[in-house]
């Protein structure tokens, strides 16, 4: 499903640049996401994917370029303000509030829309239920497994009632069953009208979930298209370390 014109664009990123010291982490990256899409952002480690998310969500200040969210310029907005507008991100390395229960972790997200404590807690329980975490509500977040933490990241972000979710490798480190669970959960989330951009290495998930994908390599957007188009693109295969990667792609597995 290609973008159907500006009216439905949720996210519009143009010419985004970020340099760390001498390193060009993101160079002239452009990306647009329409309402209701699931778009994957893939690329080798160090390609600049996380940096791109950080700039879009207000954690890093871009050196150049524009970021529009629902046709509103949000460049320079602080992260909490972006979140309140409906743009929620998760972190590649999960950042739970370790001494708080799962319930209270999620409630922090819910407080973005609800001031009252019991309301936020009720919403949090609801979200946990939807993501199959209901039995874990009273556990300390610090005691969760990797899979549990990833799911908590997603639950907290979801509790902020976003329009757009930026998910940074929510499937990394999970086993096949856990990945299937998350894929199903993401489909459910999209069905409620939330747009999703996900950074992902698990090609199986990328292929089955996304309408379109972007490929970032050395900070540059080198390809865009449907997952099938992307995996046939020679530039993309090249980016994933030549023949070895091509063979793995043929298997439908990339673990860069």
């Amino acid at each position: 499903m290609p973008p159907t014109g500006r009216a439905t664009d949720v996210l519009e990123v143009t010419g985004l640049c970020k340099t760390f010291g001498g390193l060009r982490a993101v160079a002239d990256a452009t990306l647009s996401v329409a309402a209701g899409e699931i778009v994957s952002l893939i690329g080798p480690n160090g390609a600049g994917k996380t940096t791109l998310f950080a700039m879009v969500s207000g954690f890093l200040k871009p050196d150049a370029g524009t970021v529009q969210f629902q046709r509103r310029d949000i460049k320079g907005l602080r992260p909490h303000a972006a979140c309140r507008l409906g743009l929620a991100r998760t972190f590649q390395v999960a950042r739970p509030f370790p001494n708080l229960s799962v319930h209270h972790n999620i409630a922090i997200g819910a407080h973005t829309r609800y001031r009252r404590r019991n309301q936020a807690l009720a919403i949090a329980a609801e979200v946990a239920e939807r993501l199959g975490m209901a039995s874990r509500l009273d556990d300390h977040a610090g005691s969760l497994t990797v899979a549990g933490r990833k799911r908590l990241e997603l639950a907290r972000a979801l509790a902020t009632r976003p329009r757009l979710l930026l998910l940074d490798e929510v499937m990394a480190g999970l086993n096949a069953t856990e990945i299937d669970d998350i894929v199903a959960a993401l489909r459910g989330i999209r069905a409620t009208g939330i747009t999703i951009v996900l950074i992902e290495h698990v090609m199986r998930a990328v292929k089955s979930l996304s309408d379109r994908a972007y490929v970032l390599n050395h900070g540059r957007m080198i390809a865009t298209g449907t997952p099938a188009e992307i995996t046939r693109n020679p530039d993309v295969i090249e980016a994933y370390l030549g023949h070895g990667a091509a063979a793995r792609l043929a298997d439908g597995q990339i673990d860069a």
Binding site: R78, H80, P98, I108, H111
Partner: peptide, 24 residues
């Protein structure tokens, strides 16, 4: 028992995560 108190603890636990979840 207020949102302020919950958000304050969240900031203590992880400031970036709190910001990402709409906490100023």
């Amino acid at each position: 028992r207020t949102r302020f108190g919950a958000q304050l603890v969240a900031v203590r636990e992880n400031e970036d995560a709190a910001e990402a979840l709409g906490v100023d």
